[in-house]
Design a protein around this nucleic acid. Structure first.
Lengths: 341, 341
DNA sequence: CTGAAAGCGCTTACAG
DNA sequence: CTGAAAGCGCTTACAG
């Protein structure tokens, strides 16, 4: 299999290099008949464009913006760190990532940030609140030809090109199955804590969780979900009240952050060993609690994978190339003490 | 941050392009003083070489060989399919993968295949038996400057550059924890089936599995491991005898292939619901059994990830670039019915 | 709607 | 041990 170049295609089709380039990259201003002739030659010769030559010739780097929430959420900080690492590596690939921090919980502020993006931008990935102003801003960008990706929490009704994150509904179901299985035949109550029900991801987790418990584990009863804003102190307060009010509490699922709060409450009340605790996100601290057994299982979305995937998808879509679905699918990782990375 | 080129470095260091290239790529025949001057300029300017230009200029494609086992093992066929898909994509990246099939269980044959590799080859990834002749062949290649990767099953005492696969010891421990948790307080026997104890991966799984069960689940007793060559029929025979001989069998762990054999035995004896079954590898058929509940949990290594990772690692090491550990780590996936991809 | 030419930032012989 | 020049396979203005 000899490698074919644009040159070969041009010769075969009887046109110039520039024209073949136009056809290959779908630029307009080419006669339909010419397009056909070129495509025939491409097919005949089995031509595949050379990525490296193309990126080199283009000269300009791609300019992508990543919008992350302000605040001290441990998960978001881990994601931020991975984006920084990816940014350094992508510099050698002619891709420029710039990271911007916005109060994601404020729909108007987020929409304004999106609207203020320089017109030279090639694409943007955003941790988005599902809010009408945000949807509008995303659609406006998409209409301008900017590639828009949603990160972690989706805005499915917008014209974003892709969502980088897990199926949170399935994550909630997974948590439920783990708890159902680990609790075994015991009867009792299950407490669920979320960060905020304003973000779509936690709502979806709640929905999946309650569905599986109620449908498959008749011995368990899910208590009304409590919001705790991903803050350790609030999570601890909520956990303590759950433990106090329900002597028959057999499990806790914290779908948000602030896992240390649950741990503190479990330890203070001496109920570590009889209450199953399923948490989200592998961090230095959840890892430790998993090893000790305070956390029984962890559900994780790999922040490194998400950052790398975001960069790849932005670039591929910008270049009009297809993405590799299997490579970009963010898994719902289940970690027990034994299979942590 | 302006983008710096070799040209800029050459000017700053007062040498030619060719000399900077020599330093950047560690080619020899450069005076120590010159090397220092060039490195100083690189540091001063914050120069990063342009991957695309370099791959383009090199002209020649990389030529990598993938050696997979002959036979009809479903997992290996899935891996093969992923390598074929990766091969097509890599063509556009100036990387050529060729796939070769060898009887991996025959150490001498495998070693001979490795020795017969054309000298023009840039790297090889091999599903390797841990056998003295194989180790020798791997070391000979490594000494010749060929990048050698082991795939799926490692040969840790060889000079292979990297192992692409999971920590099988941890995978065995994970299976044990899942079974211990899912069985709950019931007392009983646990059957373990392996493909072959000649391959290192299954031995490691066995070791990890037995360790965790014996150390942490006093209510469970692991029966002597049975080999069944990853064949459905053999696996079914073994499973039937386990079920017949042990009315108190509470779980089965099949560390190898042939999962359909376990399913058939469980269904025939009507013990699907009281025997926990943990299996390996997500395939069309294990997926179905997981949904139905015959398989309680699946441990998986992502074949798509392995194929892509292999290509990336071969290329990076061949170019003397560092790999990104987080990206290349093959996870021990745990799949319940709820979090399958 | 189409083409000729310059150039992207490296590597590769070749010469000295 | 070092350098000058050609070339990798595209894209980008510019011209017509």
């Amino acid at each position: 299999m000899v490698k074919m170049t644009l040159e070969d295609v041009a010769r075969e089709a009887g046109v110039s290099l520039a024209t073949v380039d136009r056809v290959v990259n779908g630029r307009n201003g080419v006669h339909a008949r010419t397009i056909e002739r070129v495509n025939a030659a491409i097919k005949l010769l089995g031509f595949h464009p050379d990525q490296h030559a193309s990126r080199l010739a283009r000269g300009r780097d791609y300019d992508f913006r990543i919008i992350l929430p302000t605040g001290e959420n441990e998960f978001m900080q881990a994601l931020d760190a991975e984006f920084r690492a990816t940014r350094e590596r992508q510099l050698q690939e002619r891709v420029r990532l710039s990271i911007q921090y916005v109060d994601t919980f404020d729909g108007e502020a987020l929409a304004a940030a999106l609207e203020r993006l320089p017109s030279s931008i090639d694409g943007v990935a955003v941790v988005a609140l599902d809010h009408p102003a945000v949807t509008e801003a995303i659609n406006a960008l998409a209409d301008r030809g900017v590639v828009v990706l949603t990160l972690v929490s989706d805005v499915p009704n917008s014209r974003r090109a892709h969502f980088v994150g897990i199926d949170n509904y399935a994550a909630g179901r997974t948590a439920a199955s783990l708890i159902g299985r680990f609790v075994g035949p015991r009867k009792g109550k299950v407490g669920m804590i979320a960060g905020s029900l304003a973000l779509r991801d936690h709502v979806e987790r709640q929905f999946g969780f309650e569905q599986v418990i109620s449908r498959e584990y008749a011995n368990l009863e899910v208590l009304p979900v409590r919001e705790a804003r991903d803050e350790n102190a609030r999570v601890e307060t909520v956990s303590r009240s759950l433990l106090r009010d329900h002597p028959d509490l057999v499990a806790i699922y914290n779908a948000g952050g602030g896992q240390a709060g649950v741990v503190a409450a479990l330890e203070a009340t001496g109920r570590v060993s009889d209450v199953i605790f399923v948490a989200h996100e592998l961090t230095a601290s959840t890892r430790r609690h998993l090893v000790r057994g305070t956390v029984d299982a962890l559900i994780n979305q790999d922040v490194g994978h998400m950052a790398r995937s975001t960069a790849r998808i932005l670039t591929a879509l910008r270049e009009g190339r297809p993405i590799v679905p299997g490579q970009e699918h963010i898994r719902i990782d289940i970690f027990l003490r034994d299979n942590m990375p």
